[in-house]
Design a protein around this nucleic acid. Structure first.
Lengths: 206, 206
DNA sequence: TATTTTATCCATCAACTGATGGAAACATTT
DNA sequence: AAATGTTTCCATCAGTTGATGGATAAAATA
């Protein structure tokens, strides 16, 4: 028996899926507690009770969203790893950074949702975490910082987290940082990529 | 005529100051919209209307808090810069990173408030920004990345922002990252410092 | 066609939110 | 002591929030 989330994913035009899409965008923009069920329903163009009929509690909807996002990110990481496999280290770095920053720039709600999850002690106690641990271990192996995913040194994990968070911040905080750097959106994207590459190359090549 | 904020700072035991302190802690923990005026009043041990009597609107209180925080951070940066002045680059890096991470670890609400400010499009439109631009330019000069504060290259600013945000994330997200790294609080602090130093040394020494 | 199931909306609830007016307590000045 | 100014709390407001019950429509099934 497929779960509600699976049903929504199988049928992108369904009401469940449309609600999920709106919820993802709005939760990503305003955070959990600043996003009301009425905002989401209004965005979809339906009554609140229709939303509750499909997804139940607000927290259940958020939970489904996070699970969905988790799977998407994990798939993205695997895709990137596959494309980078076999290449030289500097090529792997280039491909990984380009793909991931492009993905995050094209889905700005993703960075926000991840970052919200870091702090929100308030509202979302029981919500499943973003599976950052999996990603970082995967990258550590891909970057030759560890032999296998089960034995990644603390320092390597910390370094990858640092870079990963750096990217998230630059993307979520674009409105904040872009005036400081005084560049347009296209240049901003370039500066972010260059900065991350600069730091990774220095950090991960002896 | 001293402003309300100045009066509160001059007299730390005053009701204004007590409210400001509670507000800072709670806004820093739960964010703007998840922190209610009743929570703050309850934390101080007073009625809501007493809070409103002293500070007026919720947004005015938050605004005062941010101005206060801004001044504090700026003073901290200046103190650090002074202590590092004249030393060698590697010493300057050590002193700067140690002082700033210690300060942020000892005032965990500071990182949160800064990071909240990056994203919160929602609530706090008219609130004064954290003056990140000033800090970064100052550091750029201190690290020999620029001749003077008015002419800091984009790349240098971006690199400093990257490191700065990295520190903020590690501190605000401790509850999230520490289980991943599987260390206790003391070791976590050490790992953060080491990671930041590692990346800065690599980045800022040719 | 009749019946059951699924989906949608309207009206409404209790709890909570930011905010205020006014009475009372307290402190200061005259 | 009287008068004035300052601070505190109680009661309350209107608007918003998450959430639900029930009527109604649409679709699927018999």
């Amino acid at each position: 028996m497929p779960s509600p989330l699976e049903k929504a994913r199988q049928n992108p035009g369904s009401m469940k899926a449309r609600i999920l899409a709106s919820a993802r965008r709005l939760f990503g923009e305003y955070g959990y507690s600043s996003t009301t069920t009425r905002m989401i329903a209004g965005d979809v163009g339906i009554d609140i009770s229709t939303l509750y009929y499909h997804w139940g509690e607000k927290l259940d909807l958020y939970e489904a969203l996070i699970i969905d996002l988790n799977d998407e990110i994990l798939a993205k990481f695997e895709e990137v790893e596959q494309r980078a496999r076999g290449k030289s280290l500097s090529e792997r770095l280039d491909i990984s950074i380009d793909s991931l920053t492009d993905y995050l720039f094209n889905h700005p709600e993703v960075s926000n949702l991840i970052l919200f999850g870091y702090f929100n002690k308030t509202d979302t106690e029981s919500v499943p975490d973003i599976k950052i641990d999996d990603y970082t271990s995967g990258i550590a192996v891909a970057m030759d910082l560890a032999e296998d995913k089960a034995h990644v040194p603390v320092q390597a994990k910390a370094q990858i987290l640092a870079v990963w968070n750096c990217v998230l911040n630059f993307i979520s905080g674009e409105n904040f940082f872009r005036p400081i750097l005084d560049v347009d959106h296209a240049d901003y994207q370039k500066v972010v990529k260059d900065t991350v590459k600069f730091m990774m190359v220095r950090a991960f090549t002896k």
